[in-house]
Design a protein around this nucleic acid. Sequence first.
RNA 1: GGCCCCAUAGUCAAGAGGCCUAAGACGCUGCCCUCUCAAGGCGGAAACACGGGUUCGAAUCCCGUUGGGGCUACCA
Length: 490
Amino acid sequence: MEKIRVRFAPSPTGYLHIGGARTALFNWLFAKKHNGQLILRIEDTDTERLKEDSVSQILSSLRWLGIDWDEGPEKGGDFGPYFQSQRQEYYTKAAQRLIQENKAYHCFCSAEELEEERQKQRKEGMPFRYQGKCRNLSPEEVQDRLKQGIPSVIRMKVPNSGQVVVEDLIRGTVSFNAKQFDDFIIAKSDGTPAYNFACVVDDHAMQISHVIRAEEHLSNTPKQCLIYQALGYEIPLFAHLSMILAPDRSKLSKRHGATAVGEFQEMGCLPEALVNYLTLLGWSPVELESELISPAQTISAFSLEKVSKNAAVYDVQKLIWLNGQYMTTCDLDRLTLQAIPFFIRAGLINNIDAEDNRDYIRDVVNTVRERVRTIGELTEGSRYYFQDVVSYDEKGREKYFVKQEGVAALLTKGRNCLNTVEQFDVENVESAYRQLMSELEIKGGIIIHPTRLALTGQTVSPGIFDVMALLGKKKCLERLDKAIEYIRKI
RNA sequence: GGCCCCAUAGUCAAGAGGCCUAAGACGCUGCCCUCUCAAGGCGGAAACACGGGUUCGAAUCCCGUUGGGGCUACCA
């Protein structure tokens, strides 16, 4: 088989969203699977829609996900430049050639004229198609108008009969009737290429073997085939990935909550979880026993033919669940490192703590991580390890501090019991407390619940003895004293 | 409107004419474990959009309908 070269070609009009991320991921998986290259190309021909910083955001999101490219921005390669805005000469040359070969032509119709025509046709209930007014202008006329400086676009001369057949690796053979297309624009009046044209010129120049992109481009593909044919280029293989939809089956947008990769990062998602989730959207690891799969496993099992044809509704619940799974199993030091910025932002620690108390922070992360699903939740669940308890959970307060008979005295016994523990570790603390329970002939929960509330302010936490040991003797005694005093005042 | 794609539980998704009394996962739910919450273990409810064909036999093939999505720009 020939060299496999695929590309991801985002337009820098905003952040990388999960649809784009999945397209990039599937391209990456396919390239890795076949020892091919992934090319990153920035499609920035529409200067009006460009957004500042967009490129660097997209690049950093891709890197965060672990999707690396072999050629492209900040990387270089033999087929550059990788920004379409720097490739104008290629487009101009190709368009000029088409004009010389009588396969494309200058069109001098103004936007107003076209709009008028459009309205007229709509009134008649006809689909809008350019009528080919400038199609047969004589060379002299064209030269004349060009000299006069009348703005013009370049249009394809589209044959008005015949079938255009697209071979798609996911969808099979899809055919279109050529006569439905009008003479579409390949170069705008400022000379910059229209999407379909730039795309074909670049994919050919960059020797792309497989075009893997979103389904929204399937309808553009026959036009691109027409361009390939006119230019005499070999047509690559296509694979159109189904769309990712919002829960209401509409197109995903900001109103549907987090859709940008960066937003998932901010809420404390782990990149491996997002990647894992995205691979499951449209592809399924049939021969693997679990859905928790690493990129390496995915690469070896991946095949485009097995990619699902139906649009997928994205379900944040499953992503969060996957993230929770990774939270408890991922490398602790790495997770700690990722959590620290969250802790700082939440005001739990400062930069100095982050350095000096690294071990403590790591222990906190380790004990809390198995009961939370995101780093955001981890941060919230870690509060009392860094800050004093300033209030008690309302329901817990009612149940354990107000309604529980003799709780102050009980906690005092607990306090004194802890006070006798020398080596304040989990085993010693637990055996001391257990001994107290059996002396008092009470069930564990009777003293554990109020203790938890006193130490954490919450009704939920990791195992209470783990909490005690991590908090240390001093803080445990302080917080118990404070709670006892608080209860007495009720 | 025209053209194109798609159609299995709430969601992702296995399924290539008999192996389907239709996998698995998330979510929901019952029980167990338990100091709480998670996690974990064992159960449960929940789907082939509809109508016609083809066939001895259809979730699977064909046609139609309905529904969803995309394209139809001097956007990509």
